[in-house]
Structure formats: structure tokens, C-alpha cells
Nucleic acid binder design. Structure first.
Length: 636
DNA sequence: ACGGATATAACA
DNA sequence: TTGTTATAT
């Protein structure tokens, strides 16, 4: 499980910011009448009033808890307002909360490294900003620190409010002698300012913890809620930890924490401290043992990642009891809905953030009738993610069938599905800037515009501003987990649907047209090349080399471009409100390898580079696999 | 017949 | 890797 990371020797200033009952606040902003009232956000109202997923502090006073039913909440708090999560496609739709979360992240990410930890939480590394503040304003700083930091709860100081100012002054006098504490209080000032800004610009309150590492910051961010912050000076760590129940520590809230209690009799972090590192390693392995030993002492080297966006997108639904899905048709129906939402989300991620997801995974929970064997898990299955709602739907269904096959084994019993979810992962940035393809496309002296080429169906291509990206292939797992090879081949209907594009594809077969094709690649303009590359050949070759092609072009055109093949339309941006450029996604399996052979040698060479990523490039370090294909050589 | 829907991370 | 498992909110 947890692994200890090397400890940075320089003390850092880390904050954990946590929105107060976030979903409730989002609803309160939408309907201000709810402010100050006992309120909870609930999903699916029909069974026992739905499940609570967020509870206002007013309601908490009545004993209302998350994971209560709406009905229970009404019992203990009759005046409670129950607000339902929006529903789309017959499932809970959390998008309003996601985008509210993004609003907050946009503000919180302005003062230092920022990691989106969840829909309503971030970590900040404010070390640089704090140091800067300390350097810039030495003289009058202590008074400023005082004023601002008064708003903080300082761990280790008395919580008696009447004494707070005095103890604060005392602490700050000390702090003036202690560089680390000074840094922390600067961090506290920055966080306080950020929280004010969040409140001003979003109307949301949040709480925060400020400490020298993530673990401690997280531990105290919820200590004084709502709308307060807490600082952990190093001097307070030991006293704080000794009496802290181990279960409160992040990662110890589950089985590992229980094992500490039940197997070792460790109830507090203080208890944990009496174990040697070696002993803990004996019980829990080298990694976890070391990690436990360190966190017991407040040591954690985990870095704040610089990431404002989620690493995956998923959507799912449970089908409890009688609602369980019992045949392929109902699974199909629900999978289609889930995939539709997922497709929208990956597509807008592509359009707005220029990120591309590479893997589609299907999860399910299933029961088998009769057999006591029903403990068996439904295996998750994944495959390359192909953009376009219909493709995702088709692929997800194949994954389901494959999983069901494994699940049932040889038996031929009845089954039922109690939960379904699909997710898109392995998301990569598409680097902006100029890769060699781009250079080629934009290079004026390589552009030839054959008069006889019919480009009328292509969008106007001003060449400047258009970009072509090609993502590397999946290689191995392209020979899919799906047993049938035909999976990768376009379906009959798909081929027919290509319409005018299939004409082009056919034409490409002839020698003459190959010549034309060659010229086409030299045509100035991304879209020409894209169209050229993306034709679906009648027969696909065994080796499918690429995964995807992406073309972005200036926004105004997106609404007025009509003549793309059906397939392209289906994958096109849905986000027509967005003023930014829209993005098309092309699946590489639709590229005719024979066509690639017609490309100019330098392009071919480059493409072969994509086909076979250099093995020495570590696939773990991001940027070396994908980015290196795009980034200009000089910039490496 | 369920705290649901999402997320991240480490493991084998 | 992929698929599984744990954890969190």
C-alpha cells in the first residue's frame, strides 16, 4: 500500500484546502434561500428518501450524517432541506459540482504548486511564495503576520479564544526566532488570502491546514470547520500525534488501521511510535513498515503534484436488489447511457484541456444464481479507448461480454448485474508547440497545392493555427483483450456510413490516385492531411499501427464545417458554446497503412517512430513517451 | 436490498 | 502490463 517517499531536506510549506460541505454550498449558491438552513444534498429520492452525500453544518447540529437516508435525516431534523443531485440519462450527474470545483482550483492554483486531490480538495506547495514573502517584507512583517495569522488556529496554542491573541503574540515572538515557523505563518497568510479570494469570487467557504508536509496539513485541515484554518508548527507535532488515534491518519482508516489495532494493540500514533522500523517491516513488509514508522513521527516526503485536472474519468451506476440487470439488452441500455456520458466528458477534456485518454475500462459487479460460488468477482476489462460515443459504446459492450464470459466460465447459469461502470484513464497532455509534423505542415516551401485536387469538402485551411497531433499506439493491447479480432475492424454499417469518405478510400486504391495522394500530403493544411490519413480502407491490415489522430482548428469553423464523414461528425466537439478551438479525434485504426507508405520519407520515418516507441524511453516518465514525439528536438 | 459515484494508488 | 484491492469522500 503506502510507500515512504524520500524526505526533502528543506522544510516545505504545504497546505491542504478542503471545501466545507461542498455540494451543499454549490446548491446554496444556486438557491441562496438555503443559506443558513439545515440542508443536505441527496441522490435518488425514491428509495427511503435517497442517500445523503453532503450535509450542511446547520443540519449536522441535529445529528444528520452523511450516508444517512433522506428519511432518517427528516426524522432527526424535520426542517431539513433535501436537495437532489441533478439527474441525466437516468443517473446522477455530478458535472455541476465538478465545474464548481474547477472554479476553486483556478483560484487556489495561483500562488504555488497545486494538486487537485479530489473534486473539493487541493494540496498546495507554498514554499517559494512563503520564502518570497519573508524576504520581501521583513520589517513590518511581524505585525502583518500577527493580524492575518490571528485568523488561524495554531496547534499547540490554547484554544481559549480570550487568550488567543496573547498566545498568538507569544508564539509569533518565538516565531521570529524560528525560521521554519515564520515560513509557516507566511504560508498561513497566503492561505488566508486565498480563502478570502475563493469566498469573494465563488461564494464558497473552505477550511485549510498548513504544515510542513501533506500528511500533517491534511490531518488538521478539518480540525476547525467550517471556514477556518489550522497551522501545525513543528513544535506541536509530537504532542499532537501521541494521542491521535491511528485510524484518523490518512490510509489507516481501513484494514491496515484495524490490523494495527487488532493485531498489534496499537490505538494511537503514540503506541505506533514504540515499534521499531524493523518490527513494523516484519509485520507489514519493507515499504509499509518504513512508511508507518515515519508517519508515526510526522515524517512524510510525499510531494505536491502539479496537477489541476483529474487523472481519469469514470461514470457508473448501481442496480441494487430488484433493479439488477438480468439480460444483455438492459446491460446494453445502461452501458450506452454511461458511455454517452463518458464520451462527452473525454471529448470536452480533449477540447478544453487538450488531453487524450488512452484506455477504456469496464467494471461490473455481478451475482450468479444458485451457486454459492457467487462470491466470485466480475473481472474488469480494458481496451484502447476509441473516441466517439458509438465506438465507446460498442467497445464497452464487447468488454462486458468478455468479462461475462470469464465470469461465468463454463457454467450456463443465470446472472445479474448489480453495478456497472466505465472509465477513461491514461490521460496525456497533447503538447502544444511544434512537432516535426507541424513544421512540415507549416513549412511554406513544402507546400504544393495541386489544382486538380478536390478539396472543396475540406474546411478552409489557413495553415496557421491548425495543428496535427498523433498519439502513440497501444501496441500490445491492440490485439485486444476482446477475443475476436474483428473487434478492431469497422463494422459493416460503419463502413457504409462513411459516405463520401469511402469514395475517397476506394479511389486511394488505384495507382493514379496514389499519386494524387502523395500530392495531397504536400498540400498545405492540416485538415487535408488528416482527411487523407484518416480514410478507412476496405480492408485493414493486420498490424494496426496508430491509435489516434487529433486535429484542432480555429473555433469559428467548427460550427460551419459540414462535409466531414459521419464518423468525424460523431466525434466532433459537442461543445459549441466554447469559443476555443474544437478538436476532432480520429482513430488510428481507420488509417490505411498503405496510405502511410505514400507519405514523404521524412513523415514516414516520423510515423514509424510513433509506431515503435524507442524502448529505452521509460514508459513511466511522462513526456518521454508521448511528448518526445512532438517536442522540437532542441527543446528536449 | 445497497452509504452512491468517483477518484487515486499500490499490488501481484 | 492488466486486473485487483485498498482507501477516501
Amino acid at each position: 500500500m503506502p510507500v515512504a517517499r524520500p524526505e526533502p531536506q528543506e522544510p516545505r510549506v504545504i497546505a491542504h484546502v478542503d471545501m466545507d460541505c461542498f455540494y451543499v454550498q454549490v446548491e446554496q449558491r444556486r438557491n441562496p434561500e438555503l443559506r443558513g438552513q439545515p440542508t443536505a444534498v441527496v441522490q435518488y429520492n425514491d428509495w427511503k428518501g435517497g442517500g445523503l452525500i453532503a450535509v450542511s453544518y446547520e443540519a449536522r447540529k441535529f445529528g444528520v450524517k452523511r450516508s444517512m437516508r433522506g428519511d432518517e435525516a427528516k426524522m432527526v431534523c424535520p426542517s431539513i432541506n433535501l436537495i437532489q443531485v441533478p439527474v441525466a440519462r437516468d443517473k446522477a450527474d455530478l458535472n455541476v459540482y465538478r465545474s464548481a470545483g474547477s472554479e476553486v482550483v483556478a483560484i487556489l492554483s495561483t500562488k504555488g504548486k497545486c494538486e487537485r486531490a479530489s473534486i473539493d480538495e487541493v494540496y498546495l506547495d507554498l514554499t517559494d511564495a512563503a520564502k518570497e514573502m519573508l524576504l520581501e517584507s521583513p520589517p513590518e512583517l511581524s505585525e502583518l503576520i500577527f493580524e492575518e495569522a490571528t485568523k488561524s488556529n495554531i496547534l499547540g496554542l490554547t484554544s481559549d479564544v480570550s487568550n488567543r491573541e496573547d498566545s498568538m503574540r507569544a508564539w509569533l515572538c518565538r516565531a521570529s526566532a524560528d525560521y521554519q515557523d515564520k515560513l509557516l505563518s507566511c504560508g498561513a497568510i497566503i492561505v488566508a488570502q486565498l480563502r478570502v479570494k475563493v469566498l469573494e469570487e465563488t461564494q464558497f467557504t473552505c477550511s485549510a491546514g498548513i504544515a510542513h508536509n501533506k500528511m500533517l496539513a491534511k490531518l488538521v485541515s478539518g480540525m476547525h470547520k467550517p471556514a477556518q484554518q489550522t497551522v501545525v508548527p513543528s513544535s506541536a507535532v509530537q504532542d499532537f500525534l501521541v494521542s491521535l488515534p491511528v485510524k484518523k491518519m490518512k490510509q489507516l482508516g481501513g484494514k491496515l488501521g484495524s490490523s494495527l489495532q487488532d493485531d498489534l494493540g496499537v490505538n494511537t500514533v503514540g503506541d505506533l511510535q514504540s515499534y521499531t522500523e524493523e518490527k513494523l517491516q516484519e509485520y507489514y513488509g519493507v515499504n509499509t513498515g518504513t512508511w508507518l514508522w515515519k508517519i508515526a513521527r510526522g515524517i512524510s516526503g510525499e510531494e505536491v503534484e502539479d496537477r489541476l485536472l483529474p487523472k481519469s474519468h469514470g461514470c457508473g451506476k448501481t442496480f441494487p436488489g430488484p433493479k439488477a440487470l438480468k439480460n444483455n439488452a438492459s446491460v446494453q441500455t445502461w452501458l450506452d447511457r454511461l458511455c454517452e456520458e463518458l464520451s462527452e466528458r473525454v471529448q470536452s477534456d480533449l477540447n478544453q484541456n487538450k488531453r487524450i485518454a488512452q484506455t477504456l475500462t469496464l467494471y461490473a459487479r455481478a451475482c450468479k444464481k444458485n451457486e454459492s460460488d457467487s462470491i466470485k468477482k466480475f473481472p474488469s476489462k480494458s481496451c484502447p479507448l476509441r473516441y466517439g460515443t458509438v465506438k465507446i459504446q460498442e467497445d464497452a459492450m464487447k468488454l462486458f461480454e468478455s468479462g461475462l464470459h470469464d465470469f461465468l466460465g463454463s457454467q450456463n447459469t443465470k446472472w445479474s448485474i448489480t453495478s456497472l461502470s466505465v472509465s477513461a484513464s491514461k490521460i496525456f497532455d497533447i503538447p502544444s508547440g511544434t512537432g516535426s509534423i507541424l513544421r512540415y505542415i507549416k513549412c511554406p516551401n513544402s507546400t504544393v497545392s495541386p489544382a486538380n485536387l478536390d478539396c472543396s469538402s475540406l474546411p478552409e485551411d489557413p495553415s496557421l493555427g491548425n495543428k496535427l497531433y498523433i498519439a502513440p499506439n497501444h501496441e500490445e493491447h491492440c490485439e485486444p483483450s476482446l477475443s475476436e479480432k474483428e473487434h478492431c475492424e469497422p463494422s459493416l454499417s460503419e463502413k457504409e456510413d462513411h459516405g463520401n469518405n469511402s469514395n475517397l478510400a476506394k479511389r486511394c486504391q488505384t495507382k493514379e490516385e496514389k499519386k494524387v495522394s502523395k500530392k495531397l500530403t504536400e498540400v498545405k493544411g492540416t485538415c487535408s492531411i488528416l482527411k487523407f490519413l484518416s480514410q478507412s480502407p476496405p480492408v485493414l491490415s493486420e498490424k494496426r499501427k496508430f491509435d489516434s489522430l487529433i486535429c484542432s482548428h480555429p473555433g469559428p469553423e467548427s460550427s460551419s464545417e459540414p462535409n466531414q464523414a459521419e464518423e468525424y461528425k460523431s466525434t466532433q466537439s459537442v461543445d459549441r458554446n466554447s469559443a476555443s478551438s474544437s478538436t476532432w479525434m480520429f482513430n488510428v485504426e481507420d488509417i490505411d497503412p498503405a496510405v502511410v507508405e505514400e507519405l514523404p520519407p521524412e513523415i514516414q520515418r516520423e510515423i514509424h517512430g510513433w509506431i515503435r516507441p524507442p524502448k529505452h524511453a521509460s514508459s513511466k516518465t511522462r513526456g518521454s513517451t508521448i511528448s518526445s514525439y512532438f517536442l522540437p528536438a532542441k527543446r528536449s
